[in-house]
C-alpha cells in the first residue's frame, strides 16, 4: 500500500469533502481516503497494482475540482 497526498482547490464546505470521499473511496485500489477542508488536500492510501497517483488526481479533477499532486 502506498500513500499519496493530492492538493484540491475549490472545496468550500463539508458537502464537498463528503462528495470527494464518497466517490474516490469507491474507486478500485483505494484503501482509504481522508479529505481535509482546512488543508485543501486529500490523503489517499492505495494499492499501486490497481491505481496510481495520476489516475487518482484526474478522478478528483473529473468531479469539478482543481487537483494537483504534491511533491
Amino acid at each position: 500500500t502506498q500513500v499519496v497526498v493530492i492538493n484540491i482547490e475549490g472545496m468550500t464546505c463539508n458537502s464537498c469533502v463528503q462528495s470527494i470521499e464518497g466517490v474516490i473511496s469507491q474507486k478500485a485500489g483505494v484503501k482509504s481516503i481522508h479529505v481535509s477542508l482546512s488543508n485543501c488536500n486529500a490523503t489517499i492510501e492505495y494499492d499501486p497494482l490497481q491505481t496510481c497517483p495520476e489516475d487518482l488526481r484526474s478522478s478528483v479533477e473529473d468531479m469539478g475540482f482543481d487537483a494537483s499532486l504534491s511533491e
Binding site: 475549490g10 472545496m11 468550500t12 464546505c13 458537502s15 464537498c16 462528495s19 473529473d62 468531479m63 469539478g64
Partner: peptide, 15 residues
Amino acid sequence: VDMTCEGCSNAVTRV
C-alpha cells in the same frame, strides 16, 4: 442537484 454552497455550484459549472 444537491448543492449547498458556491463550491458545489462551481464543481457543477466545471463538469
